[in-house]
């Protein structure tokens, strides 16, 4: 990358490699990585949506919220948010054994057990929340 500079030009600016704007489209693994990172935008949206719901509950305007939620574009957006949050959940919970090594008496708990535990917790929390929301309604 470095080229010999002519005498008297030693102070010339260093060569800066041009940025590859499409670096994430060059390889499948990079595309998946970027897709995973972009789930965060829809995670933020989901929180905003839940805040809107909480606001409606506080103001007693849940009917209006339900009408807004039923608009086709809103349903489409939330289907996308569901896909993104589920993708986030799978990838994030699978990542856990890479971040933390659990040892019991020197025995290293294998990755699949930590991941299995995480996914079981996901299922349990989801079932509990669904039960709390849906019971007696």
């Amino acid at each position: 990358m470095t080229t010999a500079r002519p005498p008297g030009h030693e102070e010339a600016r260093p060569y800066v490699r041009p940025r590859d704007r499409w670096w994430f489209a060059r390889r499948r693994s990079l595309a998946v990585f970027v897709l995973r990172e972009l789930t965060s935008v829809l995670v933020a949206w989901t929180v905003a949506y839940l805040l809107l719901l909480l606001g409606a509950v506080a103001d007693g305007t849940t009917e209006r919220f339900a009408a807004l939620a039923a608009r086709p574009w809103m349903v489409a957006l939330n289907v996308l948010a569901l896909a993104a949050t589920a993708f986030h959940a799978v990838t994030f919970l699978n990542l856990a054994p890479k971040a933390t090594v659990v040892r019991l008496d020197g025995w290293r708990v294998p990755a699949w057990m930590i991941q299995g535990g995480n996914h079981t917790a996901w299922l349990a929390v989801s079932a509990l929340l669904a039960y709390l929301v849906l019971r007696s309604s």
């Binding site: 995670v43 989901t46 929180v47 949506y49 839940l50 719901l53 939620a69 939330n78 948010a81 569901l82 949050t85 589920a86 986030h88 959940a89 994030f92 919970l93 995480n118 917790a121 996901w122 929390v125 989801s126 929340l129 669904a130 929301v133 849906l134």
Partner: peptide, 12 residues
């Protein structure tokens, strides 16, 4: 987010 958001957005 992984544990709580998917089920909430699925329902609501």
């Amino acid at each position: 987010a992984a544990l709580t958001l998917p089920v909430l957005v699925l329902l609501f």
